[in-house]
Write a protein that binds this DNA or RNA. Sequence first.
DNA 1: TAATTTTATTCAGTAAAACTTAAGAATTTT
DNA 2: AAAATTCTTAAGTTTTACTGAATAAAATTA
Lengths: 225, 225
Amino acid sequence: MKLLLVEDSESLRNSLKIGLGNLGFTVDATGDGAEGLTMATMGSYDLMILDLMLPSVDGLTVLKTIRRKKIELKVLILSARGETEDRIEGLISGADDYLAKPFSFDELHVRLQTLSRRGGLVIDENIIEVNDFILNTQLFTLSFHGKNINLTPNEYKLIECIFKQKKLVFSPEKLSEYLAGQYDSMSKNTIEAHLSSARKKAKAAGGILPIINKRGFGYMVDQTL
Amino acid sequence: MKLLLVEDSESLRNSLKIGLGNLGFTVDATGDGAEGLTMATMGSYDLMILDLMLPSVDGLTVLKTIRRKKIELKVLILSARGETEDRIEGLISGADDYLAKPFSFDELHVRLQTLSRRGGLVIDENIIEVNDFILNTQLFTLSFHGKNINLTPNEYKLIECIFKQKKLVFSPEKLSEYLAGQYDSMSKNTIEAHLSSARKKAKAAGGILPIINKRGFGYMVDQTL
DNA sequence: TAATTTTATTCAGTAAAACTTAAGAATTTT
DNA sequence: AAAATTCTTAAGTTTTACTGAATAAAATTA
């Protein structure tokens, strides 16, 4: 699933690139309208995120050109000017969706999902979503609201194991076996320490890791949220 | 057994999600008609619970689209408008069943069972039902009318032991052995205390724990109810 | 119905499970 | 080999559960 990101602001561009990467998109990015246009023409992208405010060539012009050239591409417009005027003109010009700045990463995520579903595209089967946490089992990353959470291998494995089967309770023994392999094991406390560390990191990213303990039974995904 | 829940009201959606989860369904939920439609198309669901009143796309439209696309899916319609008019139009449009709001969780449960039986689907072999109590031996949960009852490990084990064999009387000694293992035991009174606590919790959830004492022999499922 | 026995409940002390933090060991990277 | 990261263990803390004694409530029997 290839995505082209055309966004002036370098900081936003970079953070979006990482966040969208975690969502399973292959992201190319540029801050220049003209360059974005040639990239859209040359590369075979499925989706495009297009800022209206751009140097060299204006976003609307880029969009109009793309549509004129009949390039098959879902375009999501991004704009700092939240006015209706822009919205309408943009959509008329052939945008598939519109998002006004400032926006949350989750909002963008939902829009992209809708866009790609509408087009019959599958984003990625390696993504597990729980609450607003996104686990990428191919990149081995966990993110929250587009923000990366840096996990150690064992922390990652724990979360993967639990996230993969949302309706199962994993006893510490099971988890230990999962982490250490069949012929080795680690203490219950080690599991606890890893989980604690992972929870701390999730908290630092602004979220609460949706893994709860069922005292006496084990750990599972928090279904109540 | 995958179930798709499309319901506008967030509170109802969440409580249904938990309740249906306890019944052994794997539940995905959304409040948006368009999203529900794409989910139904993409994911391989066995059952769908569909509210008629929805934002973006109307429930009936969703249903008609699903039938037109020949998606194999049992659909149960939910509606706040209890009118016959709707009922008929909905059923004609291809719904498999219809439930008018407000409804009890048990009513919904029965309908779903009927639907899944008709379709040759097995809900879950990890569910033990006694009266209106539902014990999920995979999630280690007990619920009553869709309401969760939080049990401690020993309380859970007691109920599991007794529920699993509805026609057997378990002496306190048997139960003690079941809880503590072969080489340890607990006093008769301890068993009584756990049971008492569990009964209290069940009562707080609005029900009466269907476990009775056969004086001089032990405990068993209450068959009279 | 009063006395007796059995079962239920409550409560408080004790025990155990889980969480956190920190520090040293093991591993990997540079 | 040094540095950095990660893993494991231990210890302290907090939370939750278990247990048994005391008491209350039922059921049985006399």
